[in-house]
Design a protein around this nucleic acid. Structure first.
Lengths: 148, 148
DNA sequence: ACTCCAGTTGCAATCGAGTCGCATCTGAGC
DNA sequence: GCTCAGATGCGACTCGATTGCAACTGGAGT
């Protein structure tokens, strides 16, 4: 299930420039981590990784930057079915939405892109006259291995 | 967008009996609230309503009962896109899953049942060989009125 | 290069949802 | 009724996230 994994690198920074958002040393570190992360960072991991690039980054700056990114629709916030506690996970918003599946057996997170999902969103927009800004489909269950 | 709103009343209590789960005064109050609630109760509201039926109900009992209901697959846990803070919302699990739409303008929560959603879940189960236990599709955006 | 200030930051205190340990209590099977 | 596994209330606690505030800084204007 390949995904359109990487947009242009530096894209988040570019967005900031376009929108006239001030670029600080700390934000640069945080954005770089977001851009290069494999996936599914929570705030604590993001903080730790960002501090390796700039030791001065503070927890509250991470949260404030995440809120900023969310407000601009540049990242998605995930729960991953609360498989590991109550916190949230973040990933760059890519071109296509994808479904997150969390295995209740082994904790693995899988992703899936589906035309039917796109069709479903189209139906919601049309039938409910609802303008979709953000959507999140999370599924909990058991992967092939854990189903045996 | 009509929903299969009400199952047989007292259904949650019946489930408890079937499964040999002890029925206490406090649980009776909490289940009654869950059964008669319109929808989308958070833990604090559930506590307040349950205390009107039985003043002795404690916050931790509400949380413990919610956890129990979740474990037995009798309720669904929702975030409703965190439109009102970080807490969770609960509703009885009905026959058919439905989509939750949260309006970022007016805060209204809408629901929608779709065959395409069922088809999508079928696709996930087949293509990913993933056995679905619970699924949650939440959409944030703007309703017809707020879109104007 | 210098100034300026709105916007940003670090820090520490705080909030609030949810959890836990423990002594006490109680439902339901005998 | 007795009994005791399981449930409860209470208070302390955890932990993710937020906030108030004084100090700092990016970058636009000169």
């Amino acid at each position: 299930m390949p995904l359109p994994q990487t947009e242009m690198p530096g894209r988040l920074q570019a967005h900031f420039a376009e929108r006239g958002i001030r670029m600080t040393q700390q934000r640069r570190a945080i954005l770089r981590v977001m851009e290069t992360a494999n996936k599914h960072l929570d705030a604590a991991h993001l903080l730790r990784k960002a501090q390796k690039l700039d030791a001065s980054v503070d927890r509250s700056t991470v949260y404030r930057t995440l809120k900023l990114l969310k407000r601009h629709g540049l990242i998605d916030e995930l729960d991953l079915m609360h498989i590991n506690g109550e916190g949230h996970y973040y990933e760059r918003k890519l071109n296509r939405d994808h479904i997150h599946m969390a295995c209740l057996g082994c904790g693995k997170i899988m992703e899936f892109v589906s035309d039917i999902f796109e069709k479903l969103k189209g139906q919601v927009e049309k039938d409910c006259r609802f303008r979709i800004v953000v959507s999140r489909l999370e599924i909990g269950g058991y992967c092939a291995e854990c189903s045996k």
